[in-house]
Write a protein that binds this DNA or RNA. Structure first.
Lengths: 357, 357
DNA sequence: TTGAAAGCGCTAACAC
DNA sequence: GTGTTAGCGCTTTCAA
């Protein structure tokens, strides 16, 4: 093997300095209660004096477990996932665990590579985004037999644990909400649905709601656009010019919606008088733009927090109440759409909907 | 030690199946050229068949090095750092390295904990944000003797490597730019400067420029505000109400500036006619708001990319041309401030300024 | 081109 | 409460 780096302080060095055996140092560090105070004090002094940092690689090999949890998100540029990461980080930091982060760029192959790398690192648990994974990824995960949490989804068959909400239901609920405000011709701008089950579910929710509610629906009311203000602006212009009868446009994320709103401002298109705009996510900015953006509030931070809690519990052997946690969502009515009007024949949507499918 | 998990596939299992020794498997995986094709093919089949994933923990212990690089950023909620992370990720992914991410929340103590944890993981290199670290963090870093990159700064004495720009110079340049547009009474809203050397340098840059250029400067022109649209809106209102003579407000980040701009919109305060607004970062949104935000473009992605490149080079034993890389910046003039007017006695600022201090 | 032996630094099990 | 022993799964050195 590599000849050892003589300058690196090992547990043995600390043990010698403290006049005890290595195992006592190991215990003093990990289970202080099992070492008598006097010994522990000597050891801690030796640790301090030498600047010893335990080699977690060696510890991981010996104990067959690590304090590393891997998480794969599609992109870090989307502040949406930043909140989820923050939720995880808060819990893992408190539990003394490290987060190994990877971004897949919405590529299933890249996700597979990341999962392999994380399993190679012998991560104690894995957190993935979405429910769609390559066959090989699933095989890896099954063989690894560690806790796996899929986030931002609740439907379908989970690999293990799942924390999120129903993207279908949210989208369906938003279209109902818009319909209750009197909108009958509603366009939909989706994120690219390729390898993105959340975007795909939102599209389905829109279509089914439009059909169920008897709205005017044409395939040409739909667009796909990559995540950016600019794309939102462009697709909005394209849509209102080619489909002038549209009464509202519902965007599958707030960034697209706000891009559209700002473009409307530039072009003097009155919002919501000329056309309504709705978003998805309730980012900070959604309540700051003028008028405020009608959107859906999602439990972004909570998804991360709960996912991490499920993992720490499972790892500690505590039972989890449920393998699937649906955190729900909330429609937020603001100024970019006309307010809902009470319709006697259609009961108002509950503020907080819990998914049924 | 822990009795081994019989279900885990080891290199030995692969070796047996392929009819070779473990070391040959090891070589086939890491240095395929050193194993004859026929043997390699047999081995790869065995790997495939067993679903073997090399145990990097064992490998790391044996080889005394890992493919993990640790990075500490203040917060993930700020999309600024997201771009830098993306820059790193792109390079590390291509180099087959893993990024271990931690967020310090602008706390030096938390940074210290993270550095210790990453060194415990035996990270091959570390990337930190800023130049301010606890004494113990510095001690850890010096003892570890691995490449360390401090980012978003170039001044002062680096621990090892440094990639960024001069926050002082940027701020100074922006105040000069505003002065060249005729503004004499310029307010400044800083991020909280506690444990944030970048914010502190920006504040100094503002003060020195105001003094050097003979602008009207009062301590009451300064405010500090935490990073959010809302705080930007609130501090702006506070500032314009308590200091009605102000002609422009320069915010130390775009989010604050845009929050202010949107609040001005709500209150019917004409921008830039009544008062100018300038930001810092050039986030996507800065060019989308109406009017567009005058700000500074920073090499966010580049900082991450270059930091990662310095590390991969150093790790491979390649020499790096310079231990400090100044990536510069660029003032972006948009509609939230009056355009600069040519002043015969003051030469126009170059578009791209390179730091001198 | 391939293999045997030795150990990387730590922890689990069991003994004292 | 503390120590001894035996590895965890891999890579390095050296030899064949």
């Amino acid at each position: 093997m590599a000849k050892r780096d003589e300058t690196q302080v090992r547990m043995e060095d600390v043990a010698k300095l403290a006049g005890v055996s290595v195992i006592t140092v190991s215990r003093a560090l990990r289970q202080p209660g099992k070492v008598v105070e006097q010994t522990r004090t000597k050891i801690m002094q030796a640790v301090e004096q030498t600047g010893y940092i335990p080699n977690l690689v060696a510890g991981g090999l010996a104990s067959q477990r690590t304090n590393v949890v891997g998480a794969v998100i599609p992109t870090i540029t989307n502040s949406i996932f930043a909140d989820t990461i923050r939720g995880m980080s808060d819990v893992f930091a408190a539990a003394g665990m490290q987060l190994l982060l990877g971004t897949s760029g919405y590529s299933l192959l890249r996700e597979e590579e990341l999962v392999a790398a994380m399993l190679g690192q012998r991560a104690s648990a894995l957190i993935l985004t979405g429910a769609t994974h390559s066959k090989r990824t699933r095989a890896y995960l099954e063989r690894a037999r560690i806790p796996v949490v899929e986030t931002w989804v609740v439907d379908q068959r989970p690999i293990d644990l799942r924390v999120g909400f129903s993207n279908f239901d949210v989208s369906y609920a938003m279209v109902r909400h818009l319909a209750s405000s009197g909108y009958r011709r509603i366009g939909f701008v989706s994120a690219p649905v390729k390898a993105n089950d959340r975007a795909e579910a939102r599209l389905r929710g829109y279509r089914e709601a439009a059909r169920d509610l008897g709205l005017t629906y044409k395939r040409s009311y739909e667009r796909q656009a990559a995540f950016s203000f600019r794309h939102g602006a462009e697709v909005f212009v394209d849509l209102v010019e080619s489909e002038p009868a549209l009464e509202a446009v519902y965007f599958a994320n707030d960034i697209l919606a706000i891009g559209a709103l700002l473009e409307a401002q530039r072009r003097g298109i009155a919002i919501p008088d000329h056309i309504g705009i709705a978003g998805f996510d309730d980012v900070d900015l959604a309540s700051e733009v003028n008028p405020g953006l009608t959107t859906v509030r999602l439990p972004r931070y909570e998804i991360g927090r709960v996912a991490a809690e499920l993992i720490t519990k499972t790892l500690m052997g505590d039972p989890v109440p449920s393998k699937i946690v649906d955190l729900g969502f909330q429609i937020i009515q603001r100024g970019t759409t006309r307010p809902p009007r009470p319709e006697p024949d259609a009961p108002k949507l509950p503020k907080r909907a819990r998914a049924s499918r």
